[in-house]
């Protein structure tokens, strides 16, 4: 058997680790996750990495592939390989725990700080609220609600890199979805949570989040929506409906 071999470099160790080279057999229809799994099963079982669904549903397998954050399960090697070489590292802007696994607790803490929780205006004794899909607010949240928290946009964001306290595109995108839920009682407090040096006004609209989002969501547009909403509320003094 004459297998074509790929030269793969994987990040090994914690933040002070290094890239180590591995030769991995190339196959047709091979994803980057297949490569990482092959190394773990055939070369070094101590390799740490995350994955769950393998079909682009769970958002847990994001890594840096040849310099770009990507879902490894939905990235074909043929699409990203560069002269037979692949360099796979942990996501940027997140502390490395070990190898390809990052600590995402700060990422999820920021989701909470951005205030994107649903707080209802109703009790369980009230009838179920109807929400027309045609309402402008519901349509504004159409894209934002599809996010699966993979962290790719967060890893791609230069503002997160420069300003570690910045809430980041994913958390602000979630806040935009929550803000547009007209059943919510906390719409004003969401705007307060996303205003300030860590919030939406710090976004430079470079749109790396949009460029890298694996499902073509546009967190930059959501952030622009939050900027408009907070400005409108500040100028008029009117709370959102």
């Amino acid at each position: 058997m004459n297998l074509h071999m790929l030269q793969v470099e994987l990040w090994r160790g914690d933040a002070t680790g290094v890239y180590r080279a591995y030769d991995v057999p190339s196959q047709t229809n091979q994803t980057v996750l297949d490569i990482v799994t092959w190394v773990q099963r055939h070369i070094d079982s101590t390799l740490a990495y995350r994955f769950a669904c393998r079909v682009g549903m769970c958002g847990s397998c994001a890594m840096t592939v040849n310099g770009r954050p990507r879902w490894t399960c939905r990235t074909h090697v043929a699409k990203v390989v560069d002269n037979g070489q692949l360099r796979i590292g942990p996501l940027e802007n997140l502390p490395v725990i070990r190898d390809l696994v990052t600590d995402m607790s700060n990422f999820f803490d920021k989701w909470q700080r951005a205030g994107g929780r649903f707080e209802s205006t109703r009790t369980r004794r009230d009838p179920i609220a109807t929400l027309s899909p045609a309402r402008p607010e519901r349509r504004a949240a159409d894209g934002a609600i599809e996010c699966i928290n993979c962290g790719v946009c967060y890893a791609a964001c230069d503002v997160v890199r420069w300003r570690p306290k910045y809430l980041g595109p994913a958390a602000l995108n979630r806040a935009w979805a929550a803000y547009n839920d007209t059943r919510a009682s906390n719409r004003r407090s969401i705007l307060s949570a996303v205003t300030g040096d860590a919030g939406c006004h710090s976004c430079h609209t470079q749109q790396s989040c949009f460029e890298h989002c694996p499902v073509d969501l546009n967190p930059a547009a959501a952030i622009a929506g939050l900027k408009r909403a907070s400005l409108f509320t500040w100028l008029t003094g009117r709370s959102p409906r």
């Binding site: 205003t195 300030g196 006004h201 710090s202 900027k227 907070s230 400005l231 509320t233 500040w234 100028l235």
Partner: peptide
């Protein structure tokens, strides 16, 4: 930056 400085 807050809403005021953003506006200004």
């Amino acid at each position: 930056m807050n809403a005021l400085t953003y506006f200004l």
